[in-house]
Design a protein around this nucleic acid. Structure first.
Length: 305
DNA sequence: AAATTGGACAACCGCCGGGCT
DNA sequence: CAGCCCGGCGGTTGTCCAATT
């Protein structure tokens, strides 16, 4: 017996969403939060498939989405990440705050794939240039296209350890995060750009007058205020504090054996990085995408071995 | 000015894995 | 343990629109 379809297809709207549908969906999620997608359409009074609602929300309506205007730095990062991860768009998207897997996938398919796949491929046409994209974005905004651009970026795969609140007050110099299931510290926000602020999980919800009890949080990460190119000059090894692994971490021995050496990207480390949402950072070291690029370089070298 | 072409991207589809019963 | 539900993911399609003929 096969599983039932996610929804009956009869009588459901399909195709582009109307402003009214968007409003209904946004309002419903604002009140009830995400989840229960299958029942959502009925409860919200939408003639849409639950999956469709979820996709619409995740790829378009979510307030933390930054759409269009992919910068050259983001582009380079996408290329590197794709080289490392392949078509794992969701993983790639997690490294690009505000970007959705669908957007990155589309961007790759229409731009980067052709370019990267064929070294002889001619330079992008003017229509594809960054400058023109800026013009297009500007044009779109002038046409009052509803481009959602918020600073709050949800970091859905990072959780604060369930410790007393004082553990994660907004003292960035001591804040540490823990990746799901890894049991080791994953990120120190100490020297995040001052433009990047950690906010509690319910900030996002607050924006929607919601109040979920999730422990996950968001990182206020304004890409436009982070000069990615500034990040390209730091030494990646310095970013990693291998000694930060807890004593009962099974990997500690392996890692500590290399702690006195220039960083050699371990499989585990790479795995951590590719499966978590944050990079392990050494306190007092600037967070930057160039370092991610360096990490990718290391990962590429490792993969080539 | 109309028809055609091609790019961009929103949306859909089917599959899969995890969790629950 | 099997069956089911739910959500996530990647591939593909459909539609819109600007550029070109």
């Amino acid at each position: 017996m096969g599983r039932s379809a996610c929804c009956a297809k009869e009588g459901l709207n399909r195709g582009a969403w109307t402003a009214q549908e968007d409003k209904i969906l946004t309002e419903y999620i604002r009140i009830h939060g995400e989840g229960k997608w299958r029942n959502l359409p009925k409860r919200a009074g939408l003639k849409r498939c639950g999956k469709s609602c979820r996709l619409r929300w995740l790829n378009y309506l979510r307030p933390d989405i930054k759409r269009g205007n992919i910068s050259p730095d983001e582009e380079e990062l996408i290329i590197r990440l794709h080289k490392l991860l392949g078509n794992r768009w969701s993983l790639i998207a997690r490294r690009l705050p505000g970007r959705t897997d669908n957007e990155i996938k589309n961007y790759w398919n229409t731009n980067l794939g052709k370019r990267v796949g064929d070294p002889q491929c001619p330079a992008p046409t003017p229509k594809h240039s960054y400058e023109n994209k800026l013009k297009q974005a500007s044009k779109q905004s002038n046409l009052s296209t509803h481009v959602i651009r918020t600073k709050a970026i949800r970091c859905s795969k990072v959780f604060l350890t369930p410790q007393p609140r004082s553990q994660y007050e907004y003292d960035f110099s001591s804040m540490e995060l823990e990746a799901v299931g890894t049991g080791h510290q994953i990120l120190d926000i100490g020297q995040l750009s001052t433009n990047n602020k950690l906010v509690e999980s319910d900030t996002y919800e607050d924006n929607n007058n919601n109040h979920l009890n999730s422990l996950d949080f968001m990182m206020n990460f304004n890409m436009e205020e982070v000069c990615l190119t500034d990040l390209l000059s730091s030494d990646f090894p310095d970013m990693f504090d291998i000694t930060n692994y807890s004593d009962n971490d099974a990997r500690r021995n392996d890692l500590s054996s290399t702690s006195e050496q220039p960083l050699i990207l371990s499989e585990q480390l790479l795995q951590d990085w590719t499966t978590s949402s944050c990079v392990q950072l050494q306190p007092n070291v600037p967070t930057n995408l160039q370092s991610l690029a360096s990490l990718l370089d290391s990962g590429e070298e490792w993969l080539a071995q």
